[in-house]
Every structure is written in structure tokens, then in C-alpha cells.
Design a protein around this nucleic acid. Structure first.
Length: 486
RNA sequence: GGUAAGGUGGCAGAACGGUCAUGCGUGGGCCUGCAAAGCCUAUACAAGGGGGUUCGACUCCCUCUCUUACCUCCA
């Protein structure tokens, strides 16, 4: 039973980690949404786990915009951090130079993944004054204190600490894992500012140093999106302590709810285990792009519900590849049919049903995304259109009008998922057409060796041919590394 | 130990209190000069164990068990 009226935009619901309930990102009647996504720490290459989180939010954003809601998206780069400093020292470069390198690479890779640019990508190092201001507020409120080695947030001052992750402070204190630090009043207190006059360091009212990890997100999200964000998210592993700490800082400062919806994306696993540096099972985005290309990676990342883990296995990737091949071929199938290449019996009795099935699939696609961004079901709905088109084509009943409609819908659904069929300019298409024509002439004359040679030539251009009863359909394939290896 | 999310056919993975998607895989057929892709068709004892609620549960409740994640940096 839907609680709201269900008119387009208002019907989108996302499950909030904190309350466990679904609610609309756009609130009541608003047509804009603010989204803050915790991005990457720039000391190494991005991996598939990063990709999954970012692609999930990318689809959320695309779907919101399709529903007429303008999303303002802010995604940070953490460019000051102990690991960056250590890595820079090892390589003998400046921390800023290292960060710059990985930020550049990030943009290149995620552009290839067809991820829309965020409205801004704030960096911690460019917001030191905002961070200092934020910390000053917290000290004024009595929620932060200056110690020997830094400025700390006093967890005891925030009564609701633990509400996001479902943890109780005394349980956390009794856990043996917490680092004992004499300087802290409470082992749960976390650093807002670390004193260290080393390489990357900035002056502050309390002493030279650098910000702690969590404060940058509170400061920057507030600066760009205000005190209360509509959707705040990241990977599940950020729930504690990162997001918990952000809530503590921000809500202490404003006395208001920090984020209306917390959205957390499940981990990418390798053989059932979380991908992590310590296990040495990291798969980089760069490598994945080489092996599988952007569309397969996206389909893989969207193959299950975002909140659940997904296993980066060869089998799963192959399945995504098979799906992609079908979608790709279908785009061409519909394009050819639309160009009126006499498909035979248009307007048969089955066509009326086809229009209904198409409309139904589109409704299911959008409804799936409305319902807590169920990309798995959305992909299924898209695949229903693909197989319907294939069935009609195989039966010689692909009516050009239907093909045009289906092609438009398929493109639109693909766009929402961020899938992109390789571009082909008309001149190239015409060239392929005439090659195919020539080959069919050879086939009619029984000159099969020459015809096969023509087919091979086209294959080198990644054009694949399907000879049907009455015509030859061709598809321009995306080059995929893993294909070549097998 | 605490917290959270899960255990669905050979694999992946949904929905739903009553008819158990879909994809991959597998068998057969069609189409093709051959091929590829696709189509048609068939295929599966499917729900970790045990209780309970119900006319009826995979779906709700309890319990046990297993898995994973988080409790330390992590998307």
C-alpha cells in the first residue's frame, strides 16, 4: 500500500538505513533533491567496490531526473589522510601531487563508465577554513575539546551516538578493539583536528595540523547542500564510524536532522569475501574496463539489489556480458527494422499485443526503480523488451512502427541505467550496408568463399552479421577484452 | 562477545500470504550455403533445520544453525 499519491516523482522511495523505512528522496512535493556521496580517498586506483557505489548513485540520479526531479549531487575527494601522506613519502612526491594524479585518473575512468559528473567534487584540502569554522562551532557548544595531540569530538555530548549503526556506546567502549589514547577523555572520541606540523599542514586556532577524516564531509556537505541533506550515502562499510561520526558532528552543531535518507551500498566481494587491501583481492576499475568494458561493468553492478553484496566472479561477469550482447544486438535489430528494411508481415495480429507488452515493460521498469532502486528488476524488464523484439524479428513480424517505439524505449531505459551502445556515424553505417549488400550478391551467386571473406573483413571492424531468411542484420559490437581471451 | 544483513533450483537473482519471475547453464527443434546470434520447446526434488500463527507461508512470529559485513583505515 503506497502512502503517497503516487504521481510520478513522489512515488520514488528509498530505504533509509537509520529508520529502516522507505521514504521519498524529494520529500513532500519538492522537485529538487540534494545528494551527498562519500567518494574516494585518493591514494590508489579506484576499484570495483567504488564503482558499484558510484554507479548506484548515478542510476539514482538519472532516475530522479527522469521523474522530473533535479538532483544536486556533491561527491567529495578525501585528499588529506595518513595513507596519502605515507604513500607520497614512499614515492618521494608531494601529497598534493599524488592526490592530483589519482583524481585525474578517477575522472578518466568514471567518465568511461558513463557516470554523470557530479555538480561538484569538493576536496578536503580546499575547505580547511570551513572545517576550522565547523570545529570552532563544536568547541563553542562544548562538544569538542583541545587535547595534547589534537582536537576531539566528545561523543558523550551527543546522546544519540550510535543511532545509525545500532551500536550502544558502552558496548563500543567495552570492545577491545578501540585504540587507547591517553589524550582522549573517552576512547570513543574521534579526532577533528590532528596536530602535526609536517608536510601537508595548516594553521589553526589550536595549532598547526590537518583535519581528521569525518569532519570534511560534515563541513563540505553543509557548505554545498545546507544543514539537512536529502540523501547521504556511500558504501555500507562507512556506516560506522564514518557516517555515525558525521551525524554526531553535524547534528550537534545544528540541532537538526543531518540527512533525511541514509543510503548504503553493499560490498563487492571476491569469492564471497569483501574486496580489501589486506586480503589483496582488489580489482581495479582500470583493469575491469580493459577486461569487460563499461556496459558490462554497469550491468554487473546493477545485477542485484544495491543494498546486498555482489560477487565479482567470472561467471557473474559473463552473465552480464551475455546480457549486454543481447541488448546491443537488439538496438541494431530495431534500428534496421525502423529503416524499413522490409521485414515482411508488419501489422500481424501479434502486434497489438506487442504494443501492450512494451508499455507494460516500461511501466515495470520505472516502477522497479521507484521501489528502492530495484535495478535487478529494472534490467529484467528491459530484457523483456529485448526478447520480445527478438521473437518478433525471428517470426518476421517486426513492424517498423513498433520497432521505432521499442527502440526509443529501449534507448531511454538504457540511458537511465547508463548503458551506452557504441556510436556509429551514418557514413560508417552506409559503408557497412553496402559491404553487406555486396556480400549478399556473392551469396546469391554461390560464391561462398568470397562471401565468407567479406564477413571476416567486417568482423575485424567488430561488425557481426546474422543471415536471416529474408535479410541480413548486422550489429556493431563493443570491443570487449575478455572476449578476445577466450 | 555486540550489531546489521542474509541463507530460494547446477549457478546468479526477484516478487508475493494462496498461480514460485527472469537470466545463465543443459536437452531437442527451427532459421542459415556454412556460421554466429536469435527464436521455439523442454528441463529443475528450489526455498538451512525445527516449531508456531493461518483455511493456506518461500512470504508473518519464535528458535536453532550457517554465511558475510561492521565493531580498526575502508565504497
Amino acid at each position: 500500500m503506497t502512502t503517497d499519491g503516487g504521481n510520478g516523482a513522489g512515488s520514488i522511495a528509498i530505504r533509509d538505513t537509520l529508520s529502516g523505512k522507505r521514504s521519498s528522496p524529494s520529500g513532500q512535493g519538492s522537485d529538487t533533491v540534494s545528494i551527498y556521496l562519500c567518494g574516494v580517498t585518493v591514494y590508489d586506483d579506484a576499484h570495483i567496490g567504488h564503482a558499484r557505489t558510484i554507479i548506484t548513485f548515478d542510476v539514482l540520479r538519472r532516475h530522479l531526473e527522469y521523474r522530473g526531479i533535479r538532483a544536486t549531487m556533491v561527491q567529495n575527494f578525501t585528499d588529506v589522510d595518513d595513507k596519502i601522506i605515507a604513500r607520497a613519502r614512499d614515492e618521494g612526491v608531494q601529497a598534493s601531487e599524488l592526490g592530483e594524479r589519482y583524481i585525474k585518473r578517477y575522472h578518466e575512468e568514471f567518465e568511461r563508465l558513463n557516470v554523470l559528473r557530479a555538480d561538484s567534487y569538493p576536496r578536503a584540502t580546499e575547505h580547511i577554513q570551513d572545517i576550522i569554522g565547523f570545529i570552532t562551532n563544536l568547541i563553542e557548544k562544548g562538544a569538542a575539546y583541545v587535547a595534547k595531540n589534537g582536537v576531539y569530538f566528545a561523543v558523550s555530548e551527543f546522546a544519540q551516538y550510535g543511532k545509525l549503526s545500532g551500536k550502544k556506546t558502552d558496548q563500543l567502549r567495552s570492545g577491545a578493539r578501540i585504540e587507547i589514547d591517553e589524550a582522549k577523555r573517552d576512547p570513543l572520541d574521534f579526532a577533528l583536528w590532528k596536530f602535526d606540523a609536517g608536510d601537508p599542514s595548516w594553521d589553526s586556532p589550536w595549532g598547526a595540523g590537518r583535519p581528521g577524516w569525518h569532519i570534511e564531509c560534515s563541513a563540505m556537505s553543509t557548505k554545498y547542500l545546507g544543514d539537512c541533506i536529502d540523501v547521504h550515502g556511500g558504501g555500507r562499510d562507512l556506516i560506522f564510524p564514518h557516517h555515525e561520526n558525521e551525524i554526531a558532528q553535524s547534528e550537534t552543531r545544528t540541532g537538526r536532522m543531518f540527512a533525511r535518507i541514509w543510503m548504503h551500498v553493499g560490498m563487492v566481494t571476491i569469492g564471497g569475501e569483501k574486496m580489501s587491501k589486506s586480503l589483496g583481492n582488489i580489482r581495479s576499475v582500470g583493469r575491469a574496463l580493459e577486461d569487460w568494458g563499461p556496459n558490462v561493468i554497469r550491468l554487473f553492478c546493477l545485477s542485484g539489489h544495491y543494498s546486498k553484496p555482489v560477487d565479482y566472479s567470472d561467471e557473474n561477469l559473463r552473465e552480464s556480458l551475455a546480457r549486454w550482447r543481447q541488448i546491443e544486438a537488439c538496438h541494431y535489430e530495431l534500428m534496421h527494422a525502423t529503416r524499413g528494411a522490409g521485414g515482411g508481415g508488419g501489422g500481424g495480429p501479434g502486434d497489438a499485443g506487442a504494443a501492450g507488452r512494451l508499455a507494460d515493460a516500461v511501466v515495470r521498469f520505472d516502477a522497479a526503480l521507484d521501489d528502492d532502486l530495484n535495478t535487478h528488476l529494472a534490467v529484467s524488464a528491459l530484457m523483456d523488451v529485448v526478447s520480445d523484439a527478438n521473437a518478433l524479428a525471428a517470426g518476421g513480424a517486426l513492424d517498423p512502427g513498433w520497432a521505432a517505439d521499442a527502440g526509443a524505449e529501449l534507448s531511454r531505459m538504457s540511458r537511465t541505467l547508463g548503458l551506452r551502445v557504441p556510436d556509429m556515424d551514418p557514413a560508417e553505417a552506409a559503408a557497412v550496408d553496402s559491404e553487406v549488400e555486396a556480400r549478399n550478391g556473392l551469396r546469391r551467386q554461390g560464391r561462398y568463399e568470397e562471401a565468407d571473406a567479406a564477413r571476416d573483413r567486417l568482423r575485424e571492424l567488430h561488425v557481426e552479421l546474422f543471415d536471416r531468411r529474408d535479410k541480413t542484420v548486422w550489429v556493431k559490437r563493443e570491443k570487449i577484452g575478455a572476449d578476445a581471451k577466450n
